[in-house]
Design a protein around this nucleic acid. Structure first.
Ligand SMILES: [Mn+2]
Ligand SMILES: [Mn+2]
Ligand SMILES: [Zn+2]
Ligand SMILES: [Zn+2]
Lengths: 156, 156
DNA sequence: ATTGAAAATGAGAATAAATCGCAATTAAAA
DNA sequence: TTTTAATTGCGATTTATTCTCATTTTCAAT
């Protein structure tokens, strides 16, 4: 049925691992979300939906999904390891707004090519890469400008 | 005397903070190291040198050094936040060998330009970025090839 | 020099993410 | 079915980092 399930199942079988209901549930939830997420969030979301599987299983399943190539870790935003699904989505990089936390995704063929080129020059065989640009989105830049116009005070 | 000390002092003064002996010691150690490092390593190194300052002070000082622009966080390798000094060193990106942990530094003007270009297109104002490429260095590739030549067994 | 207020320190407790140990359960190949 | 290795949940544990707070220190103003 589900292509992702088929892929995951296949991946597991290849390693003598089992396609358990818990793993199925995590997979399902992962692909129902359309944002970046972390283990705890996923656990909570499942809990809310009355899918009672343990945190441990969530923590144990996510790395498997990464290895299977269905999801990937994203830039670590604040302490927690976060993920995004990759399947049917393709590789991309991120801009992260320092002001509001917004995430902008982008992909540059040129940058990807240059990276490979550089790796080649160093005899380095790239497996994955992550590019994250922190800064301010349009809206936050506007907000900041307005604040500066105002007369006084500014803690922080 | 020391330019970095002058900068840090200036930075601190500007915020009503104090240039204490503890902060001086951390700064000194940071610039004596020439590799990436984490808080605990720095603490241990200071301890070894009989500089008795608390972990808490190390943990408190590093973020200040980051804000001052003298050092920066690097790609998180394994759980710990790691840093490198930036002053007098210039921005660069990293390749990280999955096999042996080696770090290769590089800088590509072209990639930097492309990044800025893309940010402009998105109305995004970049503040800092991090590009990390994980993969295998020359030596580790060789090792892997040899292993494959051997007849049997391979856990993991 | 003295003083005083604000900031910093050290020591250990507290927190939070992630991992682990283990007894009980379960998937799935034979 | 049976069998066996894999998996689960639970709580305990680990590890990095932050926090608390009583005491000490800095530094600018007297
Ligand atoms: Mn993304
Ligand atoms: Mn570096
Ligand atoms: Zn924003
Ligand atoms: Zn290597």
């Amino acid at each position: 049925m589900d292509k992702t399930a088929a892929i995951f199942k296949e991946f597991l079988k290849g390693r003598g691992l089992k396609f358990t209901p818990e793993r199925k549930a995590v997979l399902r939830e992962v692909f129902s979300l359309h944002r970046h997420f972390d283990a705890e969030t996923l656990y909570q979301e499942l809990y809310r939906k009355k899918v009672r599987i343990s945190r441990a299983s969530v923590y144990r399943t996510l790395p498997l999904l990464v290895k299977s190539g269905l999801i990937a870790e994203t830039l670590r935003c604040q302490g927690k390891t976060s993920y995004e699904h990759i399947y049917g989505h393709g590789h991309h990089d991120h801009m992260l707004c320092i002001g509001c936390g917004k995430v902008i995704e982008f992909r540059s063929e040129k940058i990807e090519k240059l990276q490979n080129e550089i790796c080649r020059r160093h005899g380095f065989k790239p497996v994955e890469h992550r590019l994250g640009i922190k800064g301010y989105c349009r809206e936050c830049q506007r907000k900041i400008k307005m604040k500066k116009k105002l007369p006084l005070d500014s803690a922080e």
